[in-house]
Amino acid sequence: MSGEVKTKKLFQYTYLLLIGGVIALLVGYFWLSQKQQRPGEPLEKVTLAEPTQPSAGPVYIAYIKGYFKDEGLDVTLQPHTSGKAALNAVLEGKADLAVVAETPIMFAVMRGEKIYAIATLFTSEKNMAIIARKDRKISLPADLKGKRIGVSIGTNGEFFMDALLVMHGIPVKEVKAVSLTPEEMFDSLVKGEVDAVSTWHPHLIRLQKKFGERAITFYGDGIYTWTFNVAVMQEFAHKNPEVIQRVLRTLIKAVEFIRENPDESRKIIADYIRMDESLLRELWGIYNFGITLEQSLLINLENQTRWAIKNKLTDKTKVPNYLNFIYLDGLKAVKPEAVTIIR
């Protein structure tokens, strides 16, 4: 009888133990999954300087859609006319982050500024071209020899022109480079003051529309990839690694949104930067949005550096080690597969 009771007790305990184990597992699982969400923390104030260009699209999407807030960031967008100006704001301490092309970054590094590129958010191979007037007897790139080419000296426009000329066996000395601001390009070509201009969109598309069949456009065919990147002061990155990660997460989310909702994204971007939406739609096909850190960024920066040294655009003679100016840890923590820089 007592043996029976004992066995019964044993069974009861075993049951209880099993049930307890299952409950403990469930509770543990829910506790862990709950732990990942931590709402209610105060928002981190961040100022982001942007170039008012479609290439900074993910920033506008994230801002308008409130993705920054979702990540606990109170972001102020600081508009600038170019990426260079935006980077200057960071260098002057007026902003925390800047959306900027690789060339201003290269020059800043050459000047000895302690900055980091934390991610590329935009690339395009057809954002820049040389457009030439056919009436100046230009129908092939080789025809550019001896011609007057409008270019903004010291910008990637000049770098592109040099690269294109080299690629087609034309020594840079055999063309007449005419220094123009980006805004002067249109009028100069229309007036015929230059035979061609090395410029980028939207000036490029305006000229293409203006001339139509009367002009020819030479793209780089892979010799140059224009990038827009997010840059910060090195000090900021070291002090706020968490903020960097959140910014990157937000931008990744915004890029996903753009991929899934291109029409809505175009509308948001066009509205924000007050650009003709139809124009944006025309250009949309040449834009690539994606948060990455690629080996090509390094190579690009180095190529431009060598070009700058060769053309005496800088007083430095040695190519710096750009690995020291790229902040890998942020993106590695958020999206490691997006980092293809060899390490």
């Binding site: 080996q295 390094l298 190579i299 180095e302 060598r306 190519v319 080690n321 690995l323 060899i342 390490r343």
Partner: peptide, 20 residues
């Protein structure tokens, strides 16, 4: 790749990256 780059440019960055 880096060896290839090095053979082209012989720069410090390649060495660093190779080592890394």
């Amino acid at each position: 790749i880096i060896t290839y780059e090095y053979l082209l440019h012989h720069e410090e960055r390649m060495q660093t990256q190779w080592q890394l």
